[in-house]
Design a protein around this nucleic acid. Structure first.
Lengths: 198, 198
DNA sequence: GTCTATAATATGATAGAC
DNA sequence: GTCTATCATATTATAGAC
């Protein structure tokens, strides 16, 4: 198939999203202009509109893709039936997944308020589904005596906040390695809900 | 003292800061215009510049005042010498302080990237001082055997993230009261570092 | 598929009247 | 102390040339 010079339709779309991800994470959605994104990609501002109807859709698509990926990645994790084993799997998965994509995580947590109402509701629903995965584990452990949590919803929010917080300080090549960090957070999570850390 | 009609110099300054706090928290610094702040206060945009040299200073002053208040409030909390008692005091203080001013907390954590370099460094230094307060408690407990934490710095970041996260979901008049929430978070914090929750 | 040019609007900040 | 008017600039998004 013949193709014009300068034509890169198969790569420019993804590159627009990558540039937007990087810039939104660094400076915030509202502070980034379409011109900055275009400059990062190496095209003129007008060309971006071949790949997104508008700036808001760009943000929504990034957040939506991130949340869908989070849910499907967790769905693919092998987990036992014992609540302790399932919490162990969740904590390790959460830390790994979040350390692997700090920019998308940052956007997913910081730019919710810049979503238009319909888009906000859609992202919130996905986030809620993820939180429910952890809450189900805590409830199962509460029922069979593996855990001691006075309120499973509160414990869910507390654990997710603690685990997600790793992205606030962890830096590649720092004092602690990923495996160490994962292990320590996992231990704290299990202890926090009253499980033995054996 | 005679005063012109419409003149409210003693109240307008604080009202500008309150409006900025509310709007920055809700929509984000970059997304809020000086005209919006002025409208919230009930003045015209030009009048704001009697109370702040520019928009950036407004953000910095809000964050700086918040961090100074956090540090001085913690300094005023009576704390025992036992690490367990001190962690109990810290957890309860942190939850209370943060639940009392969700907007300032939100800004302090979300708008760091919108600070100019010099302002950023100043706020980071204050935040670091606060983190060090908790880390000192954990280290003391680690040394006297009250706690079991493989890395005090990591545990510090994990606990602060967990406790601060309360502002993400807690709503006044919701299912759980403040005292309950405070107690449950305090218990999880102590358990997470291996202390008895007695 | 990308560019240049531009429309329509919003922005932060200032000057000068009252 | 506040308002109106304005400057200089930046913004999102679109139209039409190539």
């Amino acid at each position: 198939m013949a193709r014009k010079t300068g034509s890169r339709s198969e790569t420019t779309g993804p590159r627009v999203r990558e540039a937007a991800l990087r810039l939104f994470a660094r400076h915030g959605y509202a502070a980034v202009s379409m011109r900055q994104i275009a400059a990062e990609v190496g095209v003129q501002a007008g060309a971006l509109y071949l790949y997104t109807p508008d700036k808001q859709s760009l943000l929504y698509e990034l957040m939506h893709a991130h949340m869908e990926e989070l849910l499907s990645a967790w769905a693919g994790v092998p987990k036992g039936t014992d609540p302790r084993a399932r919490l162990d799997a969740f904590a390790r998965f959460h830390i790994r997944f979040h350390l692997d994509r700090p920019e998308a995580v940052f956007i997913a947590y910081m730019e919710l308020r810049n979503l238009e109402p319909g888009n906000f509701a859609a992202i919130e629903a996905l986030r809620h589904r993820y939180e429910d995965e952890l809450e189900a584990i805590l409830r199962a452990g509460q029922e069979d005596g593996s855990f001691a949590v006075p309120d499973t919803r509160l414990a869910t929010m507390a654990l997710i906040a603690m685990l997600t917080g790793v992205t606030n300080w962890y830096r590649e090549g720092g004092r602690l390695g990923r495996a160490e960090v994962e292990q320590i957070y996992r231990d704290m999570a299990l202890k926090a809900v009253g499980a033995n850390t054996a």
